[in-house]
Design a protein around this nucleic acid. Structure first.
Length: 432
RNA sequence: GGAGGCGUCGCAUAGUGGCCUAGUGCGCCCGCCUGCUAAGCGGGUUGGGGUUGAGACCCCUCGCGGGUUCAAAUCCCGCCGCCUCCGCCA
């Protein structure tokens, strides 16, 4: 845990504070429980004494006065105990809260092999495909917004008029292109055994917190103050909350869901960054894979999610690379994260199209999603937290890579063949 | 938006301040009996936390959180969810 904190560039001293808080919690809880036991016994004696007194009173027995004295005496002893129990209960409660607060400060423990450091310390695992040489082809590539406007596919100006900066309309073939892309993603997910889901795009505070989005992402999340609800930045939030407070059955393998949703992000702190086009926007749509599996299977499942992302990227035929994100850039729920970044010709660099995270038991612990401990593991009985993982299958941003990488000198765009059945067009042609 | 009702063990229900250590039925699991099946008999059957070498023991948990009380499933307040009726509206 200390090593993990260091790799993330965070304070390892928190770990010692947690151990101390846990010790305080145990001892105060022990004291409280002992006295509570005593109080229960005494209180029960009061009940018995009162019962005997009432009975005697009714039947007019001789020892009524005697019994009344006994009952009153017992009651006074119980009253005295009650105050002490309350004080101890409060102490134990505070110790528990302190521990909880400290625990929430710590990000997930990273998987062995994750590179240390920050945003720029990623490792490139693989590069797939070769960027086109537009110089050799003899024309200057247009960026996705210029292409989109010529095609009648993207309208940023009216988006800003209606909803402000970083909002947009997808129009005509643009709207059809996004629907085709997302439908292709859902179709692939279903083929691979996922259950498709259309999710709520608002969530209660406890779900947002449980999914880990109030830590580093807090500033990114829209809040609906009147109703104390949050707009979700990904269907991951809703799908993580889906099995909250449940004991689920994973004996037949992982539970795999493919969430389709609108996603909302405030993009606070990114003023001036990617202001052109639809690379960085406040609202977009996404098909997201989300998996519940056993902790032992999480690393393998993570590779499978990456493979399914690669399957999707192959279908749109864009060059991309895969990176292993460094610890400091993981976000607190993730123990490991692989991003697939597509080549954007007009920026001469790779930009993120997908991201898959192994959150191990981090989200499940907070959202209380458990399974019964399988007997064959030989680690006792009871329940334990499951592992959760997520990965992108397609988003609105993919349109950027598709338009730019498949553009022709005349401003038209060839539709990748896998996408044609979903779109019903082989080529997008400029209007007017 | 207004009015009312409800939330108890996997399911169904009893319980309206102390003989509740939450009863009963069904389901499920283990065992017994019975030469099929069925029935019958006995035991077990929420989850969390703590003490412990072990076996075991203790504390919390009646939708959730507070409060009243010596004592709360039971009384009071807030929240969540479900249902019924009325109103309004894409």
């Amino acid at each position: 845990m200390r090593a993990s904190q260091l790799a993330r560039g965070e304070d390892p001293g928190v770990v010692d504070a947690i151990l101390a808080a846990d010790e305080r919690r145990r001892s105060s809880l022990g004291q409280f429980e002992a006295l509570r036991g005593e109080q229960k016994a005494v209180s029960k004696a009061v009940g018995a004494a009162m019962g005997a007194f009432q009975k005697a009173k009714k039947s007019g027995a001789d020892n009524v006065a005697e019994l009344e004295t006994a009952a009153t005496a017992a009651r006074e002893r119980a009253a005295e105990l009650s105050d002490r129990v309350k004080a101890l209960e409060a102490t134990a409660g505070h110790a528990d809260d302190d521990l909880d607060t400290l625990m929430r400060k710590v990000g997930n423990v990273i998987v062995d092999g994750v590179p240390s450091g920050g945003e720029d310390d990623y490792i490139v695992l693989e590069t797939i495909g070769t960027p086109r040489d537009f110089t050799a082809e003899g024309f200057e590539p247009r960026d996705h917004l210029e292409l989109g406007e010529r095609l009648g596919a993207i309208d940023m100006e009216r988006g800003a008029k209606v909803a402000g900066a970083r909002f947009y309309f997808l129009t005509g073939v643009g709207a059809r292109l996004e629907l085709a892309l997302l439908n292709m993603a859902v179709a692939q997910a279903v083929e691979n055994g996922f259950t498709p889901m259309i999710t709520p795009t608002v969530a209660r505070p406890d779900v947002i917190v449980g999914a880990g989005f109030m830590d580093a992402h807090a500033e990114e999340v829209y809040h609906l103050q009147t109703d104390d609800l949050y707009l979700t930045g990904t269907s991951e939030v809703a799908l993580a909350g889906y099995h909250a407070d449940e004991i689920i059955d994973l004996t037949d393998g992982p539970k795999r869901y493919a969430g389709w949703s609108a996603c909302y992000r405030r993009e606070a702190g990114s003023h001036g960054k990617d202001t052109r086009g639809i690379i960085r926007v406040h609202q977009f749509h996404k098909v997201e894979m989300f998996v519940y599996c056993r902790p032992e299977d999480a690393a393998d499942e993570h590779q499978r999610l990456l493979d399914w992302e690669r399957e999707m990227l192959a279908k749109v035929e864009v060059p991309y690379r895969i990176i292993d994100t460094a610890a400091g850039d993981l976000g607190s729920p993730a123990a490991r994260k692989f991003d697939c970044e597509a080549w954007v010709p007009t920026q001469s660099r790779y930009r993120e199209l997908t991201s898959t995270s192994n959150c191990t038991t981090f989200q499940a612990r907070r959202l209380n999603t458990r399974e019964r401990v399988p007997a064959d593991l030989g680690i006792g009985s009871g329940t334990r937290a499951v592992a959760t993982l997520n990965g992108t299958l397609a988003t609105t941003r993919w349109i950027v890579a598709i338009l730019e990488n498949h553009q022709q000198p005349d401003g038209s765009v060839l539709v990748p063949s896998a996408l044609r059945p979903f779109l019903g067009l082989d080529v997008l042609t400029p209007i007017g």
